[in-house]
């Protein structure tokens, strides 16, 4: 029970602890890095290097007035912000952190993640509708359209990985990359997945549901205090999830590159997993600092006219090659 094996209490506690702490720290990392990218310092006052900034933020959010607008639909207004952190945390259940570290080995692991990501769309939609605010309504509509559309390409884009790994089980997908990471045969799948993933997590430059310059704060305009905090943290957990999914699906998960194993397998696995995750996190922050936001109709037509054909073509070609080799 207290040893590292998949599903053990220690493993579960470890995963939950790491994810929550990392998500909180991500907020600091992002603000600090954005600061450096923008020729400023970022938060550096609370604790050494501003490390305790997230703690201070949480303290602030919790003690703020938890206001529900009188014109809002109360029940759904309260439920909406709860959905996103819960489903995002549940998604981590199937992520293989390292050999023997993980919550469960579900044989439909990938489908589980898609189910959860699908539910996450309700958070923004419900929040936008329940607020009874025109800006929130526009944001909610954008979120619904964007997340549902991009889920389609996201799903299709990783079917190539499923074909090559011959499994929906995340751990088996990692193990299938023993002889070579899927980034090479599945480069287009990777690109589509990366972009669709950004859109799913509403990260820049696909932050249209919040598009500050257009619709103030979109679906969460009316939210304040910890309810806003939940949306906020949910977004960061989502970004962390995406940053872990990418290595698992395309970069060999916990496996060391060029045989650079260090120490025992669990330690080495955790180390390389965090390096790879960290690299994607930094990449996403850099994207946020660099790119501009497309217009809503451009986002949609880009998705359906570029991403969908690309992912379908990728699936078709992968399937054809695997079939011909098998035959």
């Amino acid at each position: 029970m207290f040893t590292f094996e998949v599903g053990s209490l220690l493993s579960i506690a470890f995963v939950l602890g790491v994810v929550l702490v990392a998500a909180a720290m991500l907020i600091w990392v992002e603000r600090r890095l954005l600061g450096f990218f923008n020729e400023r310092l970022g938060p550096n006052r609370v604790g050494p290097f501003g490390l305790l900034q997230s703690l201070a933020d949480v303290g602030k959010l919790i003690t703020k007035e938890d206001w529900i607008p009188p014109f809002a639909d109360k029940a759904s207004f309260v439920i909406a912000p709860l959905i996103i952190p819960i489903v995002m945390l549940l998604s981590f259940a199937v992520i293989p952190f390292a050999p023997d570290v993980g919550v469960m080995d579900l044989n439909i692991g990938l489908l589980w993640i898609f189910a959860m990501a699908g539910l996450a769309a309700y958070s923004a939609m419900l929040g936008g509708l329940a607020s009874n605010n025109k800006f929130a309504l526009l944001g909610g509509l954008r979120a619904a359209g964007q997340m549902i559309s991009y889920e389609v390409f996201m799903g299709i884009s990783i079917l190539g990985v499923v074909i090559l790994g011959d499994s929906f089980n995340m751990r088996e997908i990692v193990l299938a990359q023993e002889d070579g990471w899927f980034i090479i045969p599945q480069f287009f799948g990777f690109v589509v997945f990366l972009i669709a993933g950004l859109a799913e997590t509403k990260r820049w430059p696909f932050d249209l549901p919040e598009g500050e310059a257009e619709i103030i704060s979109g679906f969460n305009t009316e939210y304040s205090g910890m309810k806003f905090g939940l949306f906020f943290v949910g977004e960061y957990i989502g970004m962390l999830l995406l940053s872990m999914l990418l290595p698992v699906l395309f970069f060999g998960g916990w496996m060391a590159p060029f045989g650079l194993d260090i120490g025992p397998p669990i330690f080495s696995g955790l180390f390389w997993m965090s390096v790879k995750t960290g690299a994607f996190v930094v990449f996403f922050i850099l994207v946020r600092a660099a790119l501009a936001r497309p217009r809503y109709d451009q986002l949609m037509s880009y998705g359906w006219l570029v991403m969908l054909p690309l992912s379908l073509l990728n699936l078709l070609i992968t399937g054809a090659i695997v079939l011909s080799q098998g035959a």
Partner: peptide
Amino acid sequence: WAVDLGQLSPLFYAFV
């Protein structure tokens, strides 16, 4: 203008 188009950084460079 860049911020209104969703690009964050130029604002800070311009302010420097």
